[in-house]
């Protein structure tokens, strides 16, 4: 458990690598989630910053944003296209909208249907092509936030 804390702490302490111009910075980080069991059967989770992964690896994507300007940013919308080699699993906060058609249309995953043969089936996380968060209240000057989602290497 201590290892987990330290790893997550390190993650939080990671410096921003913001490329953004303007007044809002947006950064993207990807971690691989390694689950291990110790001799007592206790499970520990370590997030590692990977350079390499294998199919089946569980990835945690963390997007961070921060308003570094001197005015509020209204109607703040963050969009993350899923890399094609990664199957979406879930977000941590569950407030996202998703697209299963390459960003054409958006909705809650539970409301989306996939055409199959002559009918439809319910969309599953693996169908997701894009994730989007609408932060309607905007971000005030100096404030920041974090959006987290999981995927599995196909």
């Amino acid at each position: 458990m201590k290892r987990l804390i330290l790893t997550l702490a390190a993650l939080l302490c990671a410096p921003y690598t913001a490329i953004a111009a303007e007044r809002v910075e947006l950064s993207s980080d990807v971690y691989v989630e390694k689950i291990s069991h110790d001799a007592n059967g206790r499970k520990s989770v370590v997030l590692e910053k990977p350079l390499k992964v294998i199919p089946g690896d569980r990835l945690v994507f963390i997007l961070k944003y921060r308003n570094v300007g001197d005015q509020a940013a209204e109607n703040f919308v963050v969009t993350n296209p899923m890399p094609s080699a990664v199957a979406f699993q879930e977000t941590i906060d569950g407030t996202e909208l998703v697209s299963i058609d390459g960003g054409e249309s958006w909705g809650r995953l539970k409301d989306l249907r996939v055409r199959m043969g002559g009918g439809y089936r319910n969309a599953v996380p693996e169908d997701v092509t894009h994730i989007r968060w609408n932060i309607i209240n905007g971000i005030s000057v100096g404030s920041q936030g974090k959006l987290t989602f999981r995927g599995v290497v196909r």
Binding site: E22, L26, S28, Q71, A73, T79, N80, V86, G138
Partner: peptide
């Protein structure tokens, strides 16, 4: 595997 997020917001001089 490449991941890039995009964001948009309304600034004083329009959408950014």
């Amino acid at each position: 595997i490449e991941n890039t997020a995009t964001a948009s917001y309304d600034g004083p001089s329009g959408e950014v």
